Structures are given as C-alpha cells and as structure tokens.
Simulated assay, not measured.
Amino acid sequence: MAHTIINLGQGFWNIRGALRIGGLIDVGTHCSLVQLAKDRFIFLDSYELSGSVREQVMALTHQGQAVEAILNLHPFHTLHCEAMARDFPQATLYGSLRHQQKLPQLAWSPDRVESEAVAARYPELEFSLTQGIDYISAKPGVHAGSLLAYHPVSKSLHVDDTFAAPPQGGLLEKFLPEIFISPATRWALKPEANAAEIYCEWVQQLADQWQDTQNFCAAHSGLVQFKAGEFKPALLAALERARPKLQAAQ
C-alpha cells in the first residue's frame, strides 16, 4: 500500500503505510495524528514516516516539536516504535506491558496506554478496551485484543485488528462485508463461561456509543467511510455474523 496521509478534518489525519508479510504480501498498517489544541499533537500507534508523508507531518507539527505523546494502542504493533521514538524524542511514549517488555530500551511512561490515567489526559478522545477477550493473548498469532480510540469531533474511529475491513481495490472488497469482526476473536476469548456474551455486549455498547462514526480507520485494510446512520447497523451485522462461532468456542 502506498504511503499516504488522509486529512479527515477537525484535526484528525490517518496515515496509511505498508507492512509486508514474508517480504511479499503487503497487508498494510496505519497510525493517526490528532491535533488536541493549537500546537499540541499526539499519535495513535507508531509508523516510520518517510517521503512526502513525513514532510507533511513535520510541517504540521513544527518539525515534530509539537508532538507531545505517542499512544501505542495495540500490544502486538511494535515494529515501528523505535523509529517513532527516534523521530519524536520529546514525546511521551505510552504502551502496553508487552511494548515495555518487547522494547525495554525505550523510555516508556510508567502509565500503561490502556490506563484511566492516560485516558484522562486526552478528553478529546474516547477509549475502549476490548472486553471478554485477552488484550494480550498468550496464543501465537492471536491479536484480536486492542485499545480502540474514537475522535468525536471528526467522527473518526481508529482500530487495530479487533474490527477489520477488506483490502481496498481487490477481489476481497467485492465479496466481503464492509467491516467484520477479527476471525481470531474466538481464540482470544478469556477462559470464562460468559466470555463470549461479555464480548458481544461490549460490541453492542460500542455500536451505540460510537454510532456517529463516519471514518473507520482500520490497521490492515484501509479507510472505510460511512454516511450518517450507517456505522451502527454495519457493526451490529458484523457481530451477528461472528456470534455463532464465538458462542461455539465457549
């Protein structure tokens, strides 16, 4: 996927980047830049900036000096953390326990990214941690858990892996629904009798709470834009498609 920066308005930019599996298949990745107030910015997730995208970000952020924090929301998205810490050395670096364990050489804040303390510092955003499934799964390749971030002013939802969309411009986009629940969710369920029910209730609450979403920014696909009133039924339909497999996994 080409490196691009998409201005979604109201101080929210989604940055699309490349992530090649085995050096061949590009599944894409992303981060987002959020303007909190004049001369204050934060990143959601990390991505190594280059070319014209880097130039645009630096121009927006006074050569990076206005970036005050990097919030690494997904515990398994660690490839670009060092690059971001290098490019924005003055920014506070937030991450999960796995970030801290995987990259102990970086100056991580003692406050975990999913903590209430971090959420309280950024009232411009709303956060929600996946429920009923492990945030950091011990099972190899199971990355369904994440911390989701919603920017109400721009109606933009930033999500990694938990919810997804088909790759744009290919055959899968024609045959898959516009958004879907991560297939790995069934393996991420906590070892509790009602874990699937807790997860489904969490998704339903998000569909209500963030029903105004118009910009759905997913990590490994692209930007899906909804008209007013379209997001909630799309997410609930995705949940109903996934529900039987989740219940069977209990």
Rank of each mutant, 00 (worst) to 15 (best):
M1K: 12
H3R: 14
I5F: 09
G9D: 07
G11A: 07
G17H: 12
A18K: 07
G23Q: 10
G23P: 09
T29R: 07
C31Q: 09
A37I: 06
A37L: 04
D39V: 04
R40Y: 07
D45A: 11
D45E: 13
D45H: 15
S50C: 10
G51L: 08
Q63R: 14
Q65C: 07
N72A: 10
C81L: 08
F88N: 01
Y94T: 06
S96V: 11
Q105C: 03
L106G: 01
D111I: 06
R112Y: 15
E114K: 02
A117L: 14
F127K: 03
L129E: 08
T130D: 01
T130A: 14
I133G: 01
S137G: 04
V142G: 06
G145K: 11
V153I: 09
V153Q: 10
S154K: 04
S154F: 10
H158K: 08
D160P: 03
L171D: 00
L172S: 13
S182L: 05
A184S: 14
L189I: 13
A195P: 02
E197Y: 02
D208C: 01
W210K: 15
Q211F: 02
A219Y: 09
V224K: 11
Q225H: 10
P233L: 04
A234T: 06
A234Y: 08
Q247M: 12
